[in-house]
Design a protein around this nucleic acid. Structure first.
Length: 387
RNA sequence: GGGGACGUAGUUCAGCCGGCUAGAACGCUGCCCUGUCACGGCAGAGGUCGCGGGUUCGAGUCCCGUCGUCCCCG
């Protein structure tokens, strides 16, 4: 096996500095994984991702299965080769689509039946099939198929989804162990349990029994308050083995990420930096900028004067706003470049602060900076960064 | 000189035989986005219907005048 995870240092907060070796390279943790659902981080080239220092990206089983198809990607030599990304890739199983495409699917113990959002055709995804597809894609880390539910779900509903996810995890593991000929991939189990602490603990314990090389925490940040996300995360990480990576799925905002890391999370992914960029919301060390706002029409400054990213080195807010209002493609590219850089930068700072045993200090600094800028009414304040 | 069209939000236009609290699209302003169906979603501001008379219970809608724009014929 070319996989190895090691925790290099633990911060007083509970945060962990680590490294996850994969056949396609090392992931320094805590890590943020930009989302590239269809084998592309929308708006960016692979060269750009590399230049930004992206360690690992996330792709999606359900979407790639529908188009261009798992077999095609296998024939093309696997996803790494197909998309020319020789670095680590994590594939989500399609479990989230069980949740987000809810009006197009039907869930049973056997698996999920979907109607394609592309052409309406019917497809079924079983735990085994999800692994089979991910074996064809050849991702470094694959996820078991799980059932993600609404944050407001009752205890009964959450218990049922957790039980089903556990049963699916067992089937996934068994199928994987029988079909993993190349042994170049690993699989993570997923903890569910809704917003119910007792269920979260139970799901964590039972999933750990199945002995996965890493564990994900799913079904959070789907509408519940941040404090609840933190509490559920803490309940779970307290029960996960310390020597395995933990992946909190689908989070989060920059200031929230620190809180998750402080609860022992090693990996995260989120569409926020990429989707928000395409919708004109830019993250900076001084808070968020809504670049479409009129106050930036004649603003010659970059998004963040302290940011060394390719966009901030060269382009003004006024120009970016113009690109946005004109619906130019370059708007998405330049803003995504910045937001992804910012997220990776935050992670680098987080790792640095853990190395110094001071994540909580970093956390309060960040909080203070963000609050300061908000009180100056967000937008046009010309404050320089103190980084 | 004669004849004919048209003048309604910033823009392009809808408003049938008179009953509207005058609409749409785009634009404008603001907000949202958390394992991506979605360069998307939501909300808001903005009009004395060219102007002046008249008919009518009631006129953006009908009549007269007037100003403006455009077209056709001399």
């Amino acid at each position: 096996m070319d996989f190895r995870f090691e925790v290099l240092k633990t911060d007083p907060s509970g945060a962990r500095l680590g490294r996850l070796e994969t056949p396609h390279g090392v992931i320094e943790t805590p890590a943020f994984m930009p989302v590239g659902t269809l084998g592309t981080v929308k708006g960016l080239t692979q060269e750009s991702l590399e230049a930004l220092g992206t360690q690992v990206i996330l792709a999606n089983t359900y979407h790639l299965y529908l188009r261009p198809g798992a077999e095609l990607i296998r024939e093309m030599g696997g996803l790494h080769k197909f998309m020319s990304w020789p670095h680590p890739i994590l594939t989500d199983s399609g479990g989230y689509q069980v949740f987000s495409l809810s009006d197009l699917r039907k869930v049973t113990d056997e698996g999920v039946t979907f109607r394609s959002h592309i052409d309406g055709s019917e497809h079924s995804l079983s735990p085994e099939r999800a692994i089979e597809i991910q074996l064809a894609l050849g991702s470094d880390i694959m996820m078991v198929l799980d059932e993600c539910i609404e944050a407001s779900s009752s205890e009964e509903r959450a218990a049922a989804a957790a039980a089903r996810t556990l049963a699916w995890a067992r089937r996934s593991r068994d199928y994987f162990s029988e079909h993993d000929d190349a042994q170049r991939q690993i699989m993570f189990g997923i903890v569910q349990g809704g917003a119910h602490a007792e269920l979260r603990r139970k799901s964590a314990d039972e999933t750990v029994q199945l002995d996965f090389p890493g564990y994900a925490i799913g079904g959070l940040a789907v509408g519940e308050p941040h404090e609840v996300t933190c509490e559920m995360t803490a309940q779970v990480t307290a029960r996960l083995p310390a020597d395995r990576p933990r992946y909190l799925m689908g989070v989060g905002r920059p200031e929230q990420i620190v809180d998750y890391v402080a609860r022992g999370v090693d990996m995260m992914d989120c569409v926020l930096p990429t989707r928000s960029a395409r919708h004109g919301c830019l993250f900076t060390w001084q808070g968020r900028i809504l670049i479409k706002n009129a106050c930036y029409a004649k603003d010659p400054r970059p998004i963040d004067p302290a940011c060394p990213c390719p966009t901030c080195r060269r382009y003004s807010r006024a120009y970016l706003r113009h690109l946005f209002l004109s619906k130019e493609l370059l708007a998405a590219t330049l803003t995504t470049l910045h937001n992804v850089y910012f997220y990776l930068d935050i992670m680098a700072e987080i790792r640095k602060s853990i190395r110094f045993g001071n994540l909580l200090g970093f956390r309060s600094d960040l909080q203070a900076r963000l609050e300061n800028s908000v009180s100056e009414s967000g937008a046009a304040s010309g404050t320089e960064s103190n980084r």
